[in-house]
Amino acid sequence: MDVVVEARNLVKEYNSHRVVKGINFSVCKGECFGFLGPNGAGKTTTMSMIICYTPITKGNVTVFGLDVGRYPKKVKQKIGVIPQETNLDPDLTVFENLMVYARYFNIPKKVARNRVKELLSFVQLSDKRDEVILRLSGGMKRRLLIARSLINDPELIILDEPTIGLDPQARHLIWQKLRQLKAHGTTMVLSTHYMEEAAQLCDRLAIMDQGQIIAEGSPNHLITEFVGTEVIEIRSDGQESNYILDSLKEHQFSFERAADTLFLYSREGGRLVQKIKEVKDERIIYRPATLEDVFLKLTGRELKE
């Protein structure tokens, strides 16, 4: 498989404070690769090194085989970027935003005009063509950012928290558009802390914490490897949970306590639930394991600020 992005021993320091601590990863053609991690894990910094925005302290990143430090113009010509915070040009209309952006890529006006028309219809904003940015909703702005990132017909797009702050309808529309792009063969690298987003879009994930990649694999692989297949949540105080754990001695499971909740991870959830119900019959949640369980298990349950 063709490798599109490759990072080797990538390090970023701010005033000798290490925020990315020597990570390695590679992204293959056509793949959607996600960085998942709590705030401050180094996701955004890593992505901004890929897009030639943040200078690399040590190690290197290549995009399409080009070193990002040495060939930023060539790399940037081939990629599309969707930033975390909206930076559409508020002095220009929807149409003008895309046309002016096309010029930064030296796309001839005629070609750009057709492309803009196509893209506006792709992100369902054709009827907002002459609207000023101020009057767009959050979801429309995001869609316009997607259109803008596609103006140079990139083979790779980089998305930093693509659906942050959107309502569920807007979010699902964005996901649908991104899946369409993926089906079309576009390689994607995204960062998110929404588990559902990671599960919906990503073929492969790297979970980051404190500047390091602590686990990597497909969403399903990560779930089975780190938490098993089923989770039982029991709202319970200390004493009662000790009693429950005692009663399950002969079963295979792992557990975690977090404040008022006891989490049991197991591949034989059904039998465990039966057993638990003998001693406690209420406030038990029995569900399949999700990425969120992996995430919390690996990065801890305490608040990260």
């Binding site: 930023p72 113009k73 930076n87 040009d89 952006y101 930064y104 890529f105």
Partner: peptide
């Protein structure tokens, strides 16, 4: 406030 510079420097413009 407008982040216009940020938007431009991820294109081939330095």
């Amino acid at each position: 406030t407008q982040r216009t510079y940020d938007a431009i420097i991820v294109t081939p413009v330095s």
